[in-house]
Design a protein around this nucleic acid. Structure first.
Length: 665
DNA sequence: AGCACGCCGACT
DNA sequence: GTCGGCGTGCTC
């Protein structure tokens, strides 16, 4: 008897057996093809995983498949290995992993065809840009990768902003393209990154595809087919591009490897950088992780020689590193977030005809609406969060669930009429700046004014058109863009990362600070970075600014070693959500009480409340699992997950497992 | 996750 | 009488 074992797009972590349609030649049944099947009252598209002769399912339960969709596997050998690994490692249903790995249209059973309008960015008519001359460090980095170009090796390319990482990528790529190899470039989701894509596509006379978030389903499918059939030589995309099939993959580049957007934060919680490393090993090819601010994990791996460390300590060309200054806002009090010292500096840099960039990671007008009479603070009804006042539309908004309400005229509790508007967001900073600098163009960039399609592009154009201006914004402004005219960067508030309980808060604060700082003094204009803080003596801040990023990361590593946190241990997080906090807690207590024999070094912490205990009316409780050995944690989870699934009355509870969580609280 | 089945309350 | 609320159970 022939039985088809399928992976179906359902969260059930198992495979499903079906009978083939009678009279069909079994030779066309190759693992990886799509099959349409009845599933309860629905019809689903599944992937054939294996063909077996026996099944444990009672025969009368087996249904016949409806249709075989493909003649050729849609999931090739490598992608199959990758998906199996991901399903196994993240303990996610294989069918859902496959679903995440293939374009939407294929998931729906449509044909794998290239749409007529080509999405290839072929650079066949114009001239290619010339390679730049490399300095010694750059030359060494390129040669290091080239020397072992046909084998698996992870390289950590640690290069400060402006040190020419992209040029190194390009020159390594040139070697690979010369051997007719394909290249995958992963980038964070920084507002579509047209500049990066342009730079890659203008250098070589090869077909390039870019997978960005507003590509249509048809275009995504085209890109997928072009890569699979070797008609595209370079694929540039965000995290989901890690599942792109290739015929001759020769190199993977992960740019800004520290960026948290490589980790998917819902459903299938994979880390594209980590899967990229697995994939490079699978193909036996080199992978380059590049960053000006490498993650603590990657830095550690370089330190223990698991990764080869390539360093670019100096900026290419004439550009110089910015000069840091800490401003103690207790000594030099800030009005509307701007201390005297910073104001004077802004005036000076504007007078010299340059741009000033001010960074404030909080959008809206003010984050706190406070009643001085009874100390009431406007909070979100559905979340455990303060509501932020947005002046433009005179609303209070919850930045977590997007709830809105009119700005109250009086206190909700005691009806006192005079509410105070406290704290500082980008809108308020913009207003204050407009008063201080009346004739200077002010360009604000945050999510509130870039939602519209093309809005970001217009703002970037404005920045380009006004060589003397103040730019202010949130982290949108900090990542990826080049502002050659900026000579002063002001960090309005550096303190939020200093005392947070989250494992990675300090690391991310440091990375963001340096990323913003990197916007200054790019070309031949030296830059100044002024950092406003209430804690200028804080060790980590001091270290970062006085000694630089590496000593800062070394310090973080020391702390992680002491607290036995990653990379010195491995974590998994189980998050339970329920309308009732008690039920979520009880559920995790039950999970905690499950005994798994054969493991003694798993530490269980919790259940504890999440930092944001209530979100959209749902309470979150957390259970943290920790082990010194990745293998032990995996073994534990492999036995634990099926037991969790067996817990009865788990209704009204949603639970998710996050392996290698980025946010631990 | 979906979806059906099933058993109780308020509607034309 | 029946429309629909969501509690429960199942998917080869």
């Amino acid at each position: 008897m022939t039985i088809l074992r399928l992976a179906l797009p359902t969260p059930l972590r198992r495979l499903f057996d079906y009978l083939p349609v009678p009279g069909v030649d079994c030779a066309i049944l190759v693992p990886g093809i799509r099959v349409r099947v009845p599933f309860q009252s629905r019809r689903l598209v599944g992937i054939l995983v294996e063909i077996v002769q026996k099944t444990d399912i009672p025969l009368r339960k087996l249904k016949k498949i409806i249709e075989i969709i493909d003649a050729e596997p849609i999931i090739d050998h490598d992608i199959n290995k990758l998906c199996h690994f991901a399903a196994d490692y993240y303990h996610y249903a294989l069918g859902e992993v496959y679903a995440a790995a293939i374009p939407t249209l294929l998931r729906q059973g449509k044909d794998a065809i290239v749409k007529k309008k080509s999405i290839l960015l072929a650079n066949t008519m114009g001239q290619c840009t010339e390679p730049l001359t490399l300095n010694d460090d750059q030359e060494q980095a390129v040669r290091a990768v080239y020397a072992k170009k046909d084998q698996f090796q992870v390289y950590l390319l640690d290069g400060v902003t402006g040190s020419g990482k992209t040029e190194i990528y390009l020159q390594i790529m040139a070697h690979m393209l010369a051997q007719n190899k394909q290249i995958l470039v992963l980038i964070p989701e920084i507002s579509l990154t047209p500049q990066t894509v342009k730079r890659f596509s203008e250098r070589f006379k090869v077909p390039v595809v870019s997978l960005h978030s507003n590509l249509s389903d048809a275009d995504r499918l085209s890109a997928w087919v072009l890569a699979k059939s070797n008609q595209a030589s370079i694929v540039i995309g965000t995290r989901s591009a890690i599942f792109t099939p290739f015929r001759h993959l020769g190199l993977i580049i992960v740019d800004e490897e520290h960026d948290s957007s490589f980790k998917q934060q819902d459903r299938f919680r994979y880390h594209a950088r980590d899967l990229a490393i697995f994939r490079a090993r699978l193909h036996n090819i080199p992978i380059v992780l590049g960053s000006a601010t490498p993650s603590v994990e990657s830095f550690y791996n370089a330190k223990i020689n698991r990764y080869q460390y390539l360093s670019l300590p100096t900026r290419a060309g004439k550009a110089q590193l910015p000069d840091f200054q800490l401003i103690d806002v207790r000594q030099s009090p800030a009005e509307h977030g701007l201390s005297k010292v910073l104001l004077q500096a802004i005036t000076k840099h504007l007078a010299a005809g340059n741009q000033v960039l001010l960074f404030l990671n909080r959008r809206g007008f003010a984050p706190v609406i406070y009643c001085p009479q009874c100390a009431w603070i406007a909070g979100c009804k559905r979340c455990d969060m303060r509501m932020v006042y947005h002046r433009k539309d005179h609303l209070l908004k919850c930045h977590h669930c997007n709830a809105k309400r009119p700005m109250p005229k009086a206190c909700d509790l005691c009806s006192a009429p005079h509410l105070q508007i406290l704290g500082l967001g980008t809108e308020r900073l913009e207003q204050a700046l407009a008063e201080y600098f009346k004739d200077i163009p002010l360009i604000r960039v945050d999510r509130d004014n870039t939602k519209r399609k093309g809005a970001m592009h217009e703002l970037l154009q404005q920045i380009h058109d006004h060589p003397c201006a103040i730019l202010l914004g949130t982290q949108m402004l900090a990542k990826g863009h080049h502002f050659p005219n900026v000579t002063l960067v002001g960090i309005i508030d550096a303190d939020c990362g200093l005392f947070s309980a989250d494992l990675r808060a300090a690391e991310q604060m440091g990375q963001l600070l340096l990323q913003v700082a990197g916007r200054a003094g790019r070309a031949d204009k030296p830059g100044t970075v002024m950092v406003q803080t209430k804690f200028p003596k804080h060790d980590l801040l001091q270290l970062l600014i006085a000694k630089g990023y590496l000593p800062f990361v070394e310090q973080l590593l020391t702390e992680r070693a002491l607290s036995e946190m990653p990379p010195y241990s491995f974590l998994a997080l189980i998050r339970a959500e329920s309308l009732s906090q008690e039920r979520a807690r009880e559920f995790l207590e039950q999970v905690r009480s499950i005994t798994i024999s054969g493991t003694d070094d798993i530490e269980l912490l919790g259940p504890i409340s999440a930092t944001i205990a209530k979100r959209k009316g749902c309470y979150s409780q957390l259970l943290l699992l920790k082990s010194k050995k990745r293998m032990h944690l995996q073994y534990y989870l492999r036995l634990l997950v099926p037991e969790i699934e067996k817990i009865p009355n788990a209704h009204h509870i949603r639970w998710v497992l996050d392996v290698d969580p980025l946010e631990v609280l």
